[in-house]
Computed example of a mutant assay.
Amino acid sequence: MPAPHTTASGPMVPHPVVPLDTLAPTRRELEAAGGTTAYWVYGPADAVNTVVAVHGFRGEHHGLEPVVAALPGIRIISPDLPGFGETPPLPGRTHDIDAYSDWLRAFVEGVAPGAVILGHSFGSIVASAAVAAGLVTPRLILVNPIGAPALTGPRGVQTRLAIFYYWAGARLPRKLGTALLRNGVIVRVMSVSMAKTDDKRLRRFIHEQHDTYFSRFADRDVLRDAFVTSVSHDVSEYAPGIAVPTLLVAADRDDITPIEAERRLARIFPDAQLVEIADVGHLIHYEKPLEAAAAITGFLAAPADGGTR
């Protein structure tokens, strides 16, 4: 069994497939869009490909590490989104799609101009909005892309409950509202509902990841803004304006965007390739990192005109 993944808080449950203890990222900071962004650099400085990886809602850079560990030889730059993990909120900004898009463009231009852009889940919306708005990149990779409006998916009712949950967290007295948003039981329910694997070791890993990192948001205002952004926008808004080759890595059991919607999304892009991963839901990065990494490696190795409708 792989050695435990160790953090400042102590050893963690190991991933049963990819050993995360082999990762040795360098932590750095960059002034971008008026704020300070914390980010981590993995892989060799002289790598042929550099990828800037944008995590999902309520997450931070640790969430993408299983995929990173399966991509040796690629330089990956993984920031914490403003207001999450170790990156403070952007001063004086509502954390809407314009703020996140502006931030990502400034961050990439400051740390790795011309890098490939990767976005997971909410990060897929941010990445798509930024590229459509002018962020220069040779290729775009979207994992578990939010390909359709959240309220139209198979869990529309659950989305409405989530809207009420985040509304209540923002309206209650600050201490009580923040406690509700960080409630461990609710976080575990979210984790259980997203995990599809029957592997008990992998489920333990997923739940510990969410227990450890899912509540590392700066404050309830940022969380509310980001949630509203996540359910108010989707990748299909930006797809027609993205001309670069795009890879969509989608799951056949994703409750947030069903696979039929991902297939429609692929046809909206001028140049997109869809890879469907079986027997997984919205947690491809945790449950199927090797399959995701294989799709990414193949995409990066293909000629620039190798995308298909």
Results as ranks from 00 to 15, higher is better:
residue 7 T to P: 04
residue 7 T to Y: 12
residue 15 H to D: 04
residue 16 P to W: 08
residue 16 P to T: 06
residue 19 P to M: 10
residue 22 T to D: 13
residue 24 A to W: 02
residue 25 P to M: 08
residue 26 T to P: 08
residue 29 E to M: 09
residue 29 E to H: 14
residue 30 L to A: 15
residue 36 T to Q: 03
residue 36 T to D: 06
residue 39 Y to N: 08
residue 41 V to D: 06
residue 43 G to M: 07
residue 43 G to F: 05
residue 46 D to A: 09
residue 60 E to A: 13
residue 61 H to W: 09
residue 75 R to I: 06
residue 75 R to G: 02
residue 80 D to I: 06
residue 84 F to N: 03
residue 88 P to L: 04
residue 93 R to E: 02
residue 99 A to H: 01
residue 100 Y to G: 04
residue 101 S to P: 04
residue 104 L to N: 14
residue 106 A to G: 09
residue 106 A to N: 05
residue 111 V to M: 09
residue 112 A to E: 11
residue 113 P to D: 00
residue 114 G to K: 12
residue 115 A to I: 06
residue 117 I to V: 15
residue 121 S to C: 13
residue 123 G to K: 05
residue 127 A to S: 13
residue 145 P to H: 06
residue 149 P to R: 01
residue 156 G to K: 01
residue 160 R to S: 14
residue 167 W to E: 10
residue 172 L to A: 05
residue 183 N to V: 01
residue 185 V to S: 11
residue 187 V to L: 05
residue 187 V to M: 06
residue 188 R to M: 11
residue 189 V to A: 14
residue 193 S to M: 10
residue 195 A to M: 12
residue 196 K to M: 13
residue 205 F to M: 07
residue 208 E to K: 12
residue 212 T to E: 13
residue 214 F to I: 01
residue 215 S to M: 11
residue 216 R to S: 10
residue 216 R to C: 10
residue 217 F to V: 00
residue 221 D to V: 04
residue 229 T to N: 14
residue 232 S to H: 10
residue 238 Y to F: 15
residue 247 L to A: 06
residue 255 D to E: 13
residue 256 I to F: 15
residue 256 I to W: 03
residue 261 A to D: 02
residue 262 E to L: 11
residue 266 A to M: 09
residue 271 D to A: 15
residue 278 A to T: 12
residue 279 D to V: 08
residue 280 V to W: 00
residue 282 H to M: 03
residue 283 L to K: 03
residue 287 E to C: 12
residue 290 L to N: 12
residue 291 E to H: 10
residue 292 A to R: 01
residue 296 I to L: 09
residue 296 I to A: 08
residue 296 I to M: 14
residue 299 F to E: 02
residue 299 F to H: 10
residue 299 F to S: 11
residue 299 F to K: 15
residue 300 L to F: 00
residue 301 A to V: 05
residue 303 P to S: 03
residue 309 R to A: 13
